[in-house]
Design a protein around this nucleic acid. Structure first.
Lengths: 222, 222
DNA sequence: AATGCCGATTTGGGATACCAGCGTTGTCCG
DNA sequence: CGGACAACGCTGGTATCCCAAATCGGCATT
């Protein structure tokens, strides 16, 4: 694989895992030494990441995209029509095998699993459901939305019960798809998105202090 | 403005206006002489355009993204839930002034207007409506979808009546938003997207021969 | 005539050199 | 002691250079 893609993936991972703080400045020269490559592939990776809105320009400088908690509502508003459409289409189009694949993914994540695993599955579930719709535009839009949500979800204080509830909601959505009940699946998906949004906002609000302490600019959270 | 952005915009324009044929190969060296800049900013522009899917890699080479007419259905499927949501939100949120702005845009495009004008307004209308929703994610998604549609719309053989019908449908959508009737607006928007899709597909099918003659790979059109 | 092999040429990927602009810092003068 | 200004250093932007690999053509062989 080209060096540029390696750098892109590694940098992306560092950003999404909060190894690099939101808003942190990135100099091409620092990245140069960090990844032991020259500026050419690094700049390409940065331009690419800028397209994914994980990196941004601040004047002439590069910074890690800040987390704007104010967009959480808009994000849910965006996801609801798309994901309800996705599950309806999934009912019509997904094969038993496709559905079983998603089911396995959920099964593989048991209560003892590490935090990273829950985080990943919680994201991937939605993308995989979108994939069942067979519509590549829906898939890409959902994947982008989940990427945007990803870092905020790390900030959430996860309690065992809330994790369990999310897991149950995922199960229910998938169950209705399996039972070929598109309207119930759509209702369940919409409710799940709203529930998740509310849980996230509540948690972040309660933990503002903690966030600030960890150096995150809590912008736009009402 | 930086040279890279200039090159990006110019190249983008050349692609969207079909100055550069879909599938055509782009060599960095040709672009270098064409835009009288060095490869560095050109490569940045290409990476950027790759993110917008207007340019693509074919092995190690760069090519102008081919037009995949097979994605027209998926595109409509994607737009319907988003645009119906957009008009519903627009009813709730758009100010009189916002709506008047869109109305002016439609008014400015009279029957004598040049082809380019109709094309642009036909695209921008949907983006502006999305903007009335106040949801930036919806705006970006619709803008991306309309970009993807843009080149196929140049290939369409426009008849006066079909242009008139599209114009009337736009009017109707806007009228229902103005009358604050979200459900009627949503219905109208969905119908309009379907109508447009059908008109486009019918025209392209009838004109396959003409397309091939003009050198376009008519991939995936059933 | 078809085919396959080899080399010249061209391509993109990466590294590096150079430049212009901005900030910062440090100094000098009031 | 403070403020203004100048010099320096760091930044990203651009140009250029080198390299490996892929491509294309011509030639030899079958």
């Amino acid at each position: 694989m080209s060096q540029m893609l390696q750098i892109h993936d590694q940098l992306r991972e560092m950003i999404l895992s909060l190894d690099l703080g939101p808003g942190e400045r990135l100099t091409e020269r620092w990245l140069e030494s960090r990844f032991e490559g020259s500026r050419t592939p690094i700049r390409a990776a940065l331009v690419r990441l800028e397209g994914e809105e994980l990196v941004r320009r601040d004047g002439r400088n590069w910074i890690v995209a800040p987390i704007d908690l104010g967009e959480l509502e808009a994000l849910a508003e965006f996801r609801i029509p798309l994901e309800t459409t996705a599950v309806r289409l999934a009912c019509a189009r997904a094969s038993e095998a496709d559905i079983a694949g998603v089911e396995e993914m959920l099964d593989a994540c048991q209560s003892g699993a590490p935090r990273e695993e829950w985080h990943r599955v919680g994201t991937d579930f939605h993308v995989e459901i979108a994939r069942l719709s067979g519509n590549p535009f829906i898939v890409k839009a959902i994947a982008g939305a989940m990427t945007r949500l990803s870092r905020a979800r790390w900030l959430e204080v996860w309690t065992e019960p809330s994790r369990e509830q999310a897991w149950r909601e995922h199960r229910r959505v998938l169950g209705f798809i399996k039972a070929n009940d598109p309207e119930a699946a759509a209702r369940e998906a919409a409710d799940h998105i709203k529930d998740t949004r509310d849980r996230l906002l509540r948690s972040l609000n309660e933990d503002r202090r903690g966030l600030r302490a960890r150096g995150f600019a809590v912008v736009g959270l009402r």
